[in-house]
Design a protein around this nucleic acid. Structure first.
Length: 667
DNA sequence: TACGTGGCGCTTTTT
DNA sequence: GCGCCACGTA
């Protein structure tokens, strides 16, 4: 094998040390070596999109661009990390200076540096969706809205509404019209709630997920010196999965690239699956219009899948009207297997089939890590989970309740959040509600007694919380709680997160856990894991950011530690499977009303998005693909239902699939 | 005002 | 089969 040897370029010299032409196909090569200026890379599924981005970064570095002049925005933090690792293995250059991560994490990073300029204080908290809902409910109560007088939307709905409005750049009234027209008469009150919510976030020094996108953008728009700083810093901007960006995200990138326009966006309109949270794949379709000088590169050779799988994928997506027409070209040789179409009598037998087939594959030498079962919605995996457990097949679930969203994890984290940011009302109220005799109402009252304290830094929780008066029943626990805060953040200065967690568990939370939950053991184990995980962080801020911003999929490996060594089959929602690949993929519940989901059937646009989702699912498979559906669905309450096969199956020519006839044991 | 109990309605996707 | 919500009681 040839020895790799890289010639170090003179600064600014155009002398690449790698043989890019030899390591990339011509389409990839063109994109990787694109001249400065706007570039749109349309990359089909499995076409080496990631590889292209990695080589692009390497190419920039080799051509004298400094690492800290590069911004790489990806869909997950994990993807960013992987890419940067792979760049490092290509080059001797230090890549640590590259800013890489999700839009939210980049936004957060920016705001941490310029919190005050953005209208917040240093050390702000990040509220996840649940925190956001808690605060909204509190705001509604404080606004004096009588829930009996008119049916007022709950925090959950409000969060969804406000979030969609901000992410799409539309006024609340318009979003109400489109999504919640029955609340239109309440528009005025809803807007009042929104204004109060904004004010409350400020005084709580707390930002929600949307703020992490919006505030950085406003910062760039309103603060010329900050804008100048970052426009000059990020000389080259690369955006992965551009088809899933929303208005805020696209504007953010446009703003950063305003001067030099060195922005390369990579994506596949056929894989846009996040419109429900404001993503707009018109961003990618219209890119050439927004950047008239943009060069367009198309990468269409698929390296991932056998031709048989690709044929199904191409057929699946073809009915969509709104797309860049493209046909994935297979690179791999034909397989002797056609993707399977597997109708089953009911969902139990569907689960049984998948489990049995997984066992066979394992016997044939297929690694369990190379197998995934994908589905439209979490609950589709229920029977399968039981069936796999019964057969002793280890699996990991990358969807469903995420680790950090579980009640006990959030409770424990709330202690730290308040210790770090004593204005975090959501965190303190959450902690207070754990005490006997304190519910939402009392917690709110308690907070109102603290919040008068203003912005002064907290020197002692003892003093800070002294004005709060609680009932006799809660007195003792409250004293102890104050003491705990004092212990984990002496003099208002938080200890390292792992130490704080250990104290919280020992002092209060373990006892609470025991009395409150039947599965106390498992939850305590989770918190131990969390504490271990926290050890790698000195600074509680960084730890809490991680908790808030890292998705379940990414933590899986981080938290897993030694256990991650075991081979496991993956169960995942299609959404979370995006960007991943497996040798063998099962897509289950291919029935109308399940996939596509029943809710999508009302609008053609929604069905198109479901179809893209199906396309994403199919294109995850490298070698083998099974599309299964149960004919009978056990009804919940209202009887069993016969199901029709998914309408998406009808779009696939019969000859592309092999139908399996299943016989045998019935439950 | 906290908290337990019984009825009702029904299942998306996530930073 | 389940979780959520509303209601009634301590």
């Amino acid at each position: 094998m040839a020895r790799l040897y890289t010639l170090k370029p003179h600064p600014g010299a155009q002398r690449p040390g790698r043989d890019y032409a030899a390591e990339l196909n011509p389409q990839q090569h063109a994109a990787v070596t694109a001249p400065p200026g706007p570039a749109l890379v349309i990359a089909g599924a499995g076409s080496g999109k990631t590889r292209t981005l990695i080589y692009r970064v390497a190419y920039l570095l080799e051509n004298g661009i400094a690492a800290d002049e590069i911004l790489l925005v990806t869909f997950t933090n994990k993807a960013a990390r992987e890419m940067l690792d792979r760049v490092s293995s290509l080059l001797p250059n230090d890549t640590a200076g590259i800013w890489g991560g999700t839009f939210h994490s980049i936004g957060n990073r920016l705001l941490r540096r310029h919190a005050v300029a953005a209208g917040f204080q240093n050390g702000f908290s990040i509220m996840d969706r649940e925190d956001q809902q808690d605060m909204l409910d509190a705001v509604v109560a404080a606004a004096g809205i009588d829930p009996k007088e008119a049916r007022f939307p709950k925090g959950e709905v409000l969060a969804d509404l406000f979030s969609f409005a901000i992410n799409t750049g539309r006024p609340v009234g318009k979003v109400l019209e489109a999504k919640y027209d029955y609340f239109l008469p309440l528009l005025e009150k809803i807007e009042d709630v929104r204004a109060r919510y904004e004010a409350r976030k400020k005084s709580a020094n707390s930002l929600d997920f949307d703020d992490l996108l919006e505030k950085p953008l406003r910062l760039l728009q309103n603060d010329a010196s900050v804008a100048e700083l970052y426009r000059r810093k990020f000389q080259y901007i690369l955006v992965d999965e551009y088809q899933d960006t929303n208005k805020l995200q696209a504007d953010f990138i446009d703003s950063l690239a305003a001067h030099h326009k060195n922005v390369m966006v990579v994506g596949d309109d056929a894989q846009s699956i996040y419109s429900w949270r404001g993503a707009n794949f018109k961003n990618i379709l219209d890119f050439p219009r927004r950047y008239p000088q943009a060069q367009v590169y198309k990468i269409e050779t698929n390296y991932r899948s056998v031709p048989e799988v690709l044929a199904v994928a191409n057929a699946a997506i073809s009915p969509n009207i709104h797309q860049f027409r493209k046909e994935l070209q297979p690179h791999r040789a034909a397989s002797e297997l056609k993707p399977g179409l597997v109708p089953l009598p009911d969902s139990n037998q569907q689960a049984q089939f998948v489990a049995q087939r997984i066992l066979e594959l394992r016997d044939e030498g297929c690694d369990l890590d190379e197998i995934a079962v994908l589905y439209r919605a979490h609950y589709h995996s229920m029977e399968l989970q039981m069936e796999l457990t019964r057969h002793g097949i280890p699996f990991q679930i990358t969807s469903g309740l995420r680790f950090f969203e579980q009640t006990h994890v959030k409770d424990a984290a709330a202690f730290l959040k308040f210790a770090v940011n004593p204005r975090d009302e959501v965190a303190l109220k959450r902690v207070a509600r754990l005490l006997p005799g304190i519910g939402a109402r009392t917690a709110e009252q308690m907070w109102s007694q603290v919040s008068g304290a203003g912005d002064a830094p907290v020197e002692s929780f003892e003093k800070f919380l002294a004005p709060v008066r609680v009932g006799a029943k809660s007195q003792k626990a409250w004293r102890q709680l104050i003491h705990t805060f004092e212990e984990i953040a002496p003099g208002g200065k938080p200890n390292p997160p792992a130490e704080m967690l250990a104290v919280v568990l020992e002092a209060v939370y373990d006892d609470y856990l025991r009395t409150k939950f039947p599965n106390y053991e498992a939850r305590r184990e989770d918190l131990r894991t969390l504490t271990d995980y926290a050890r790698q962080y000195e600074d509680a801020h960084l730890f809490l950011d991680q908790l808030a911003l890292v998705s379940g999929l990414e933590t899986e490996t981080e938290l897993g530690g030694a256990e991650a060594e075991t081979e496991m089959t993956t169960l995942s929602s299609v959404h979370q499977a995006k960007g991943l690949e497996w040798k063998v993929v099962f897509v289950i519940w291919m029935a109308d009303g399940m996939f596509p989901s029943a809710r999508s059937l009302e609008s053609e646009d929604a069905i198109e998005e479901e179809r893209r989702l199906f396309y994403v699912a199919v294109t995850r498979a490298k070698d083998e693909l099974y599309l299964t559906y149960p004919i009978l669905r056990f009804g919940a309450g209202y009887g069993d239902m016969l199901q029709r096969p998914s309408r998406f199956l009808a779009d696939i020519p019969k000859e592309l699939l092999e139908e399996w006839q299943i016989s045998g044991y019935r439950y």
